[in-house]
């Protein structure tokens, strides 16, 4: 026997979470206009890091949109993510200029060293690798973005070194602060 969820199961969650307040404020600021869905999703993802079911349901109910509509829009655009982000993220530009300058070699070595392909998260959930087409710094190709920092003229080796450094720093920090 299947349990059918009732409409009320999808009622907005109690907004004790300040991040949810932020989303609520955004929806209100856009006057509950359905056209503002992408703007609201941007704000929601910025606040939570990713979009989960509760959040999407909340947005749908607030903006009076069908649930599927919200999911359909969010999944169409590659920027929106339904999974929590890994601790560290390495974005490798695979735009034309970076392709010409050997971005694939960086991706290959990343896969060899950490076992992660673009779009995947490492087994320990600490590192994710994404490919992305062109933040527009082609003069400095190949381009990397590690944890939000834009880096130019990288080599496969320098990339690996940087990431190892990052992961090692965490370990040290943890050891210092028990």
């Amino acid at each position: 026997m299947l349990v059918t969820k009732q409409q009320s199961d999808y009622a907005p969650p109690a907004t004790e979470d300040p991040r949810m307040d932020e989303v609520a404020r955004a929806v209100k600021r856009f006057g509950y206009q359905q056209d503002a869905l992408i703007e609201v999703l941007h704000i929601a993802q910025r606040a939570f890091g990713y979009l989960d079911e509760t959040l999407l349901t909340y947005i749908a109910r607030q903006m009076k949109l069908p649930l599927g509509w919200v999911y359909g829009v969010a999944s169409f655009y590659h920027f929106f993510s339904f999974e929590p982000p890994a601790e560290h993220n390495c974005v490798v530009c695979t735009g034309t200029a970076c392709y010409v300058e050997g971005a694939q070699k960086i991706l290959d070595l990343l896969e060899k060293e950490f076992g992660v392909k673009p779009g995947q998260v490492s087994a320990d959930g600490r590192l994710s690798v994404t490919d992305f087409r062109c933040p527009g710094s082609c003069g400095q190709a190949p381009i990397l973005v590690i944890d939000g920092e834009l880096l130019g003229r990288e080599t496969p080796e320098s990339t690996i070194a940087r990431i190892k450094q990052l992961l090692a720093n965490d370990k040290q920090a943890k050891e210092v602060a028990p």
Binding site: D35, I38, L41, V73, F76, R133
Partner: peptide, 26 residues
């Protein structure tokens, strides 16, 4: 300002307008 969210097809004019209106950019 209206913000895209990572879809090349949004450059196509009809898709771009759909995206401005908060829809799937088809």
């Amino acid at each position: 300002i209206r913000l895209g969210a990572g879809a090349f097809v949004c450059g196509e004019e009809t898709a771009l307008m759909l995206s401005i209106m908060g829809k799937r950019a088809q």
